[in-house]
Design a protein around this nucleic acid. Structure first.
Length: 477
DNA sequence: ATGTTC
């Protein structure tokens, strides 16, 4: 293990103040012994660097899927006191509100005789790949409403039903979105891309609920063993990327203007109460809402395909929940026994609010918020529930997925797309992607084991297992 | 992740 780190529990490690100069609080990360081999020293330095930022509360935190990112580590969680703290695009990531949603269907694996036809139809209905454009046409005015309202906009346009809105984090629309802080360039990228999946680890999957660990929770979430489900993993496309790029430039200047000392330029930030900080928050929230609308429109396309090819009713395809993986939010948390207004940055981390917390839908309130953890291509995904332990220890947060162990270029060099397609095919998993290179980059071997990551957060109790989902068909960008 | 080194 890297020098200067203290093990403080079975799954818990500390980076003491002084690990890097200027830390206000210790860093803390969660890992099993088995995962220590995957730990990157660079990611730990990033975790420590975050602890030097003004107004950080309690700890700079990282989940077991920690890896090196832009400024902040991916898998990082950091809460800042509202009046004295900062907001940073590096703590959110380029793909603002990259997230995932889970749908249930009344189908079972036996109903999937036409699996290839279904995958082909989904592939036609949801454009994939870098720069993919939608056949849907949205006006500038519609984009404005989309950024203000998110999921509710999409439902209002006929892309869903009222229940969908209730079953999203933030009801699929963050308050405080300010499209005025989304540049013309960002908008021009966003208009043609709404309704598209994107590339990289983004996917659309046909899955089966293979195992139920928590019957009462699964029942509340409307999930049964053997049920066919659909999972969508995507984000805010070029629009969110551009919002991040634009505001990074502004915040690099603001860092100097407000005399904030940072060990890394990539941590560019501004006080939450400053004009620059507020502008980023407003633009980021607008991009987050675009991502929610995007996942909602894709949901509609999925429903259209399944109703047409499987003879099931539109409203029998239910949205279990939709979570954000990359976002900063103003929330209230108990800090030293006092209810405190904070800005929680979750970058490759999932909100995991426990029972009866604010924003947990009424029908799930007695269980806690659903937490959806997508697997890497061809591997298990998991449904968990949020807990009181998360509220106490991680500002209501848990992991987001597997986490890379091979870079994209390493994966492409080492692994063959065609071989992976054939191997997965033999285990009954059908893949559609624009080219084999896209498959190699996202190969199962390029990622940490998602089951190990999930078992750490389950054993720690910052979320608890509800169900395991296995892929049957995968569409990759 | 990303009009994949604007």
């Amino acid at each position: 293990m890297i020098e200067g780190i203290k093990k403080i529990g079975d799954y818990e490690w500390e980076l003491p103040i002084g690990f890097v100069e200027g830390m206000h609080v210790p860093g803390r990360f969660f890992l099993s012994e088995k995962l220590t081999g995957t730990l990157e020293e660079g990611a730990l330095h990033q975790l420590a660097n975050v602890a030097t930022m003004p107004g950080i509360i309690r700890n700079s935190l990282a989940m077991p899927d920690i890896h090196w990112g832009y400024g902040f580590p991916i898998g990082g969680v950091a809460a800042f006191e509202y009046e004295s703290g900062v907001i940073s695009p590096g703590g959110v990531g380029f793909d603002i509100n990259c997230g995932v949603r889970l749908l249930t269907t009344p189908l079972t694996p036996g109903d999937l005789i036409k699996k290839k036809e279904i995958l082909d139809a989904l592939y036609d209905a949801v454009p994939v790949g870098v720069g993919a454009r939608s056949s849907l046409r949205f006006s500038e005015k519609q984009l404005e409403t989309m950024m203000t309202e998110g999921t509710a906009f999409a439902v209002g346009e006929g892309f869903g039903n009222k229940d969908d809105i209730l079953h999203c984090e933030e009801q699929g629309g963050m308050k405080g979105a300010e499209p005025a802080f989304v540049s013309k360039k960002a908008r021009s990228r966003g208009v043609p891309q709404c309704g598209t999946l994107g590339a990289g680890n983004h996917f659309l999957e046909i899955q089966v609920a293979q195992e139920i660990y928590d019957e009462p929770a699964a029942k509340a979430y409307g999930l049964e063993k053997g049920q066919i489900c659909m999972m969508v993993h995507c984000g805010s496309r070029g629009l969110g990327h551009q919002v991040c790029t634009d505001h990074l430039q502004i915040l690099e200047q603001a860092t100097r203007k407000y005399h904030i000392n940072l060990p890394d330029k990539q941590l560019a930030c501004a006080p939450l109460t400053s004009p620059e900080g507020k502008a980023y928050y407003g633009g980021m929230a607008a991009a987050a809402n675009y991502a929610w609308a995007n996942r909602q429109i894709i949901t509609h396309q999925i429903r259209s395909v399944l109703t047409r090819l499987c003879g099931i009713a539109y409203d029998d395809i239910r949205l279990v929940y939709d979570v954000a993986h990359n976002v900063a939010k103003i929330e209230e948390h108990d800090v030293d026994g006092k209810r405190t207004k904070v800005c929680v940055h979750r970058k490759g981390a999932t909100r995991a609010f426990g029972p009866d917390c604010q924003d947990v839908p009424p029908d799930y309130a007695h269980i806690g918020q659903p937490v959806i953890i997508p697997g890497s291509m061809g591997s298990s995904s998991y449904l968990l529930k949020g807990t009181d332990v998360a509220m106490d220890r991680t500002f209501g947060s848990t992991c987001h997925g597997a986490g890379r162990v091979l870079s994209r270029s390493q994966a492409k060099k080492k692994l063959q797309g065609k071989t992976i397609r054939e191997t997965l095919g033999r285990s009954g998993i059908m893949i559609k992607a624009p080219h084999d290179g896209a498959i190699a980059e996202e190969a199962p071997d390029a990622y940490k084991s998602s089951s190990e990551v999930v078992s750490v957060v389950h054993n720690l109790g910052i979320s608890r297992l509800v169900a395991r989902l296995e892929p049957l068909g995968v569409i990759k960008g």
